[in-house]
Design a protein around this nucleic acid. Sequence first.
RNA 1: UCCUGAGUAGCUCAGUUGGUUAGAGCAUCUGACUGUUAAUCAGAGGGUCCGGGGUUCAAGUCCCUGCUCAGGAGCCA
Length: 450
Amino acid sequence: MLSSYKSFHYIEDIHKYVGEEVTLRGWVYNLTGKGKLQFIMLRDGTGVIQCVVFKANVSEEAFENAKSLTQESSLSLTGKVVSNEKAPGGFEIDVTNLQIIQLAQEYPITPKDHGDSFLIEHRHLWLRSSRQHAIMRVRAAVMKAIRDFFDGNGFKLMDSPILTPNACEGTSTLFETEYFDLGKAYLSQSGQLYAEATALALGKVYTFGPAFRAERSKTRKHLTEFWMVEPEMAFFDLNDDMDLAEDLVEYIVQYCLKTCQKELQTLERDTTKLEKVRRPFHRMSYSDAVDWLVENKIPLNKKIDGKDVEILPFPWGEDFGSPQEEAIMEQFDKPMIIHRYPTEIKAFYMKRDPINPKVVLAMDMLGPERAGELIGGSQREDNFDLLLERIKHEDLPEDEFKWYLDLRRYGSVPHSGFGLGVERTVKWITGATHIREVIPFPRMIYRITP
RNA sequence: UCCUGAGUAGCUCAGUUGGUUAGAGCAUCUGACUGUUAAUCAGAGGGUCCGGGGUUCAAGUCCCUGCUCAGGAGCCA
């Protein structure tokens, strides 16, 4: 517990002090005046409350101070907590004294509409608005739910390096930097390989940190820097992996429903849709998904010689893009998993299905309401020879993977894991229209400030 | 990398077929008001129409070009 050193109160606790005098510190969220009466909507990070300054109840100086306030000025005020049904939230403060800490200059973000570009340029101030404030609180809840879930289920937190000598999957474009005399280093796009090593030391681990991708993606689903949690479990097969993924997502959503009702209400999120997020989720193999696309005449969109062409029926072996995933997801009102993708379109470390080596034991979890891919995971190749063969086949630098191959040399076991994108998840739960709204300071292809 | 769209006041936008001095709401400033919720009322200030070039008697408007931004594809969480 925090010691009670505070000389002021927080708005979230105000209901405990009805009839009493309190001191609040915060910022002017909005203002309106009516002659001898000034209304101040005060925010302090924990909530917003209406404070009423009546000329006859305060000193001349305090009233002049109240009149001179501007949006986002910081202040300290004292007054009595009263119940008033005219006040938003049901309570208000009858102000008896008021001191300005700093009189804010003309604040750029007004209560009226603004464009996306303007708001993102003022991200450092935009975070103060009620919608962004609510999203950040849901984000904090999602982070906590993730940690609670793993910590409470026997997982150990394991931190993987950010600077790495090679591309983890060998596909994605990475940010590059010079690393002393050792040549180039890259910002990690995934902690998975390191999580595998620690899973063989600790059993069940999760790594939780930022990931970096230098792809020139410019959509409302992509960031160049995002947060990902990656559990990795020794002795888990693909089914165990999918079960865990479903448990985790169910836990996160239910935790947010339990602890973020106010925030979800501010965001006008239809929570009945989130309440449906209960296990079991839907599952479908890649092959069954292709059959469904063929039956429903969903084509493959491909670029051949610079021309866009539609290929029908959808050919087995091609990867799904957003159009295919969205079409499949439209029938479902909770997340679903597609598993057992063609070997050729998936990463080298994924284990081949012993029943059908044309597919790997991989899985993607897609979210409803156009949330897109929330999770990507797989059972890992645990056979030394097969893994080496895949590394060679993909032309990956064998030397860099020597330590990784060692894991298959010394007590190799079946193991699995997955990665969950935090921002994708928060975007889905909050119903935010753009991923840049769900991380405090988004990093995107054409923007690195603020 | 490719495709599409946008750029006019601090902010959000309107601006007709090219035609007089480029408009509105909000914000700001001045004044009125004891119950406002994006208050209301009266008044005031505020413009490199993204930059450059061109067509024309005349360009915010048409053409070329550059810049900036947005969305989508591919890639993925």
